[in-house]
Write a protein that binds this DNA or RNA. Structure first.
Lengths: 150, 150
DNA sequence: CACATATAGTTAGCTTAGCTAACTAATTTC
DNA sequence: GAAATTAGTTAGCTAAGCTAACTATATGTG
């Protein structure tokens, strides 16, 4: 009879999403740090693990961070032996970054540890809510990445 | 025929959600700061605007932050005349916080400004995706708040 | 009642993560 | 081959989180 969807105003959705993201990340920080990888480090490392070797600029772009920020993150991860720099044979200004074996192991461990937190919590949601969260994550990624936020 | 839902492993959902939240907030930071309120300030102010006057400990708990962190956020917002401290008549150790008129106005302005960013982007999504984001925000909030992440 | 303990908030000081500006070195372009 | 561009780093700033230690008030108990 009534085909209208009760559609919360976009500004409300935006506010709630914003606050929810802030609080969720605050909450996850402890778990992250206990695993030996900060959130930003884990996120960058996952790009390297899944995306394969790439140079610093590409990684910074993928993570939507400025080069100096990524440079520091990489320096720290390198100091812990988690990533390796190789000179780029095709451009001697550049470097190629890739995870070390230790880096991959650490990433898996952090992932496991997050499993006892976020993914444990997610796993306890009804299946359809899990699917919803997955889709929401994809949408958030697209929003963060797209031109709509300029 | 096949009733099985293709259910991404919870760890994958967790990873994607984690990275998506990090990137979305990074992306929003500029807009936030251009509006004169940082993300954490806007979030705390919204709690005061919608939740009414409360003391510092309650606000810190609502924002899932330690008291010293909230104390600093409040001090900064107070310096800009956005929130007011009143002594708590029932406990002279405590303070009661409430937004000033300027604070409410600033909150609305930040909200508007975010409208030109996040909520503009959200408004351009299909209606069902908007509803999905709203539900996802509620779930994230519940996860951040609940005991599941201990 | 007095003293011990607990609680609300602040201060001090540390860390991490973001940024811009300025620099070096290599590459590309004209 | 000189000029302009690009990749990455260094230096230095700010914001936001934390713990530890402190002050002042409340509360509870012998």
């Amino acid at each position: 009879m009534c085909e209208r969807v009760v559609n919360p105003p976009a500004a409300d959705v935006a506010d709630r999403l914003h606050s929810a993201a802030i609080r969720l990340l605050r909450r996850l920080r402890r778990q992250d740090e206990a695993s030996g990888l900060s959130g930003p480090q884990a996120s960058a490392l996952s790009v390297l693990v899944f995306g394969g070797p790439m140079n610093l600029g590409a990684l910074a772009a993928a993570e939507q961070v400025r080069p100096p920020t990524m440079s520091r993150l990489v320096r720290e991860m390198e100091a812990f032996g988690l990533v390796q720099r190789r000179p780029d044979p095709r451009d001697r200004r550049g470097v190629i970054l890739e995870p070390t074996e230790k880096g991959r192991a650490m990433f898996d461990r952090a992932r496991e540890r997050r499993l006892s937190a976020l993914s444990g919590a997610i796993a306890s949601l009804p299946v359809e809510d899990q699917a919803l969260m997955d889709r929401a994550a994809a949408l958030m990624m697209a929003l963060a990445r797209g031109p709509a936020l300029d």
